[in-house]
């Protein structure tokens, strides 16, 4: 089942998105460009601030680490040179997490990173912040030699290793985080599979609809393109009726 993405649930923020997978639901809000505090100001580019709020309680060192990973991921995507001496702020609130009986925190954190990355990206698109490209963060687990993408709670519990990999639209890797025991072949298997899925999520059906897909790509509908396109079409509906 592909993730569900709802754009603009919060109307006071510049941009917002809700991202739901079988594991997590994340509400993201993006604001920017804003006035930046003197301490964080960069003379040539925009500063990016990411806040991760856990489902319950206040954040700790794990959330700070996730903020760091997402910040560097977004930095490679946002055209920071277009907004010098400003701030782009992204707030990510986890609103649903699985009941984590017997699940390692490291595994859970990597699984959460995939959702956080996708939600932050969708919120930035909704906020109209200038972006250099489109990306999809995929989540996969390696389990006794086989690869499971978009794992549920059950798959996550018995897995050998878990991998969150961000792929850009031109096939470049933007982020790779893993947890557990795995070898190079396993990692390559998961990353390659996630790359195919990421390309499938943003592929343009109208351009190559009749082409025969090469097995792994093209089985699923392009969920990211559909979700973003729907939001644009809703906003432009007045053109047709007016």
């Amino acid at each position: 089942m592909p993730p569900t993405l709802t754009l603009h649930p919060l109307h006071r923020a510049d941009g917002s998105a809700t991202h739901t997978t079988p594991l997590f639901t994340i509400l993201a809000a993006a604001n920017g460009p804003l006035e930046v505090s003197r301490r964080d100001e960069l003379p040539e580019e925009a500063a990016i601030e990411v806040n991760v709020r856990p489902c319950s309680g206040v954040g700790g060192p794990r959330e700070r680490w996730m903020e760091g990973v997402i910040t560097s991921l977004l930095k490679s995507l946002v055209l920071v040179n277009m907004y010098p001496r400003t701030l782009v702020q992204v707030t990510l609130q986890v609103t649903k997490e699985p009941g984590m009986g017997g699940l390692k925190r490291a595994v859970k954190d990597v699984a959460l990173l995939a959702g956080l990355g996708n939600a932050a990206f969708a919120a930035l698109v909704d906020a109209g912040v200038a972006l250099g490209g489109t990306m999809v963060v995929g989540l996969g687990v390696a389990r006794e030699g086989e690869v499971v993408v978009e794992p549920g709670e059950k798959e996550l519990l018995g897995c050998g290793s878990v991998h969150a990999v961000a792929w850009g639209m031109r096939g470049e890797m933007l982020m790779a985080e893993s947890a557990g025991r795995f070898g190079v072949e396993e990692w390559e298997g998961v990353a390659g599979r996630l790359r195919g899925d990421a390309m499938g999520a943003i592929k343009n059906d109208e351009e190559d609809g009749d082409d025969v897909m090469d097995g792994e790509v093209g089985q699923k509908e392009p969920w990211l393109r559909q979700a973003l396109g729907e939001s644009v079409r809703d906003a432009g509906a007045w053109r047709e009726t007016g």
């Binding site: 603009h8 920017g32 109209g128 644009v232 906003a235």
Partner: peptide, 26 residues
């Protein structure tokens, strides 16, 4: 493009732009 949106063109002025649905005023 730098954001998602629909492409609009004005052939008289040889202009093109992307209409983004939301976002902050620039």
């Amino acid at each position: 493009t730098t954001t998602s949106g629909s492409l609009h063109t004005d052939p008289k002025k040889a202009a093109l732009w992307i209409d983004a649905p939301h976002g902050r005023y620039q």
